[in-house]
């Protein structure tokens, strides 16, 4: 395997892992399968389009702001009153939020796909261990890898992270111990907003365009990756997303040219096989003793 292939594979794996953590975190805490996650990604992408002529740190900062604001607004306006609702109600509500935000975007600022001119540095290549590696792939790896490390640090080493993980596992018990719903739920939406923004920045870099329905595919990747890894386990979800991304890159490389169009068929057939063997997901239920 060449260095450029490895960088691309691990980078896409890290991007998909970010997407799945965003889905699994809210599912764990609220039982919310958040189909509006794609619209948070779209909001960040719209900021990238809106501020594309500003210095890139400004565009990145505004993408973060837009995503976090949309995430928090969806929590406050839609999900706040449904905290004790059953998962099906929450799922329908998230569909409604998704369609509403998407429709508003289509009617106002994004009636059709808009191009985002790529930054010149993204098109360059660097020599790395004798291979020519795209700066865009390296930045994907660095940004998504860094974000994953930051999430791991937040969830594993901080008091807030412990509260988030406890709430994701058993919110009722966490509340009995004094973990505040009004703290952890908005914090979870902020984390989701930041993850969506970082994913969105990378997606805009890779696709070079923004549209009202651009969040659909990444949201589905997040859901599928989380199901593969295990919805109730954040580490499992991240692993599921990573494997999905790595497998996508691998298939693009090993499949003959006439079969590339069927890449997703191969990918999702593998997903179905994995779920037949482990319907609870790869890591869910592992290392937990039933007593």
């Amino acid at each position: 395997m060449s260095v450029d292939f490895l960088v691309a594979m691990v980078g896409l794996g890290a991007l998909y892992a970010l997407l799945t953590i965003g889905v699994a975190l809210l599912f764990g805490i609220l039982g919310l399968m958040n189909f509006a996650y794609g619209e948070i990604i779209m909001a960040a992408a719209f900021a990238m389009y809106l501020f594309q002529h500003s210095p890139w740190p400004v565009a990145v900062a505004m993408a973060l702001v837009f995503a976090v604001v949309v995430a928090l607004l969806s929590e406050r306006l839609a999900f706040f009153r449904l905290r004790d609702a059953d998962p099906v109600t929450l799922m329908i509500a998230s569909f409604a939020v998704s369609l509403a935000v998407q429709s508003v975007a289509r009617m106002t600022v994004l009636p059709r796909a808009q191009g985002v001119s790529p930054k010149s540095f993204l098109t360059r290549h660097l020599d790395l261990l004798g291979a020519s590696v795209s700066v865009r792939e390296l930045l994907t790896l660095a940004l998504c890898g860094g974000a994953l490390a930051a999430v791991a640090l937040l969830l594993g080493r901080t008091g807030l992270g412990i509260q988030l993980r406890a709430a994701a596992e058993n919110f009722q018990m966490a509340k009995c111990l004094g973990v505040r719903a009004n703290l952890v739920i908005p914090c979870a939406f902020v984390v989701v907003g930041v993850l969506a923004a970082i994913s969105s920045i990378v997606l805009v870099w890779r696709q070079g365009s923004v549209s009202a329905d651009m969040g659909l595919q990444p949201m589905l990747i997040g859901v599928v990756g989380a199901v593969v890894g295990g919805m109730s386990n954040l580490r499992g979800a991240a692993l599921g997303g990573f494997l999905l991304g790595a497998a996508t890159t691998l298939l693009e490389t090993v499949l003959p040219a006439n079969l590339i169009a069927f890449r997703d068929s191969f990918l999702f057939t593998t997903v179905i096989l994995v779920l037949i063997v482990r319907p609870q997901g790869l890591l869910s239920g592992a290392k937990v003793r039933v007593s």
């Binding site: 412990i162 993980r165 406890a166 596992e169 009995c176 111990l177 004094g178 973990v179 386990n233 937990v288």
Partner: peptide, 24 residues
């Protein structure tokens, strides 16, 4: 409150579970 199912956070460590006891 110690519930019937113990309410242990099975994916957290013993130390993290104990820290949650004094979260407030």
């Amino acid at each position: 409150y110690v519930p019937e199912d113990r309410g242990i956070f099975t994916k957290l460590t013993v130390g993290e579970n104990l820290r949650l006891g004094g979260v407030t």
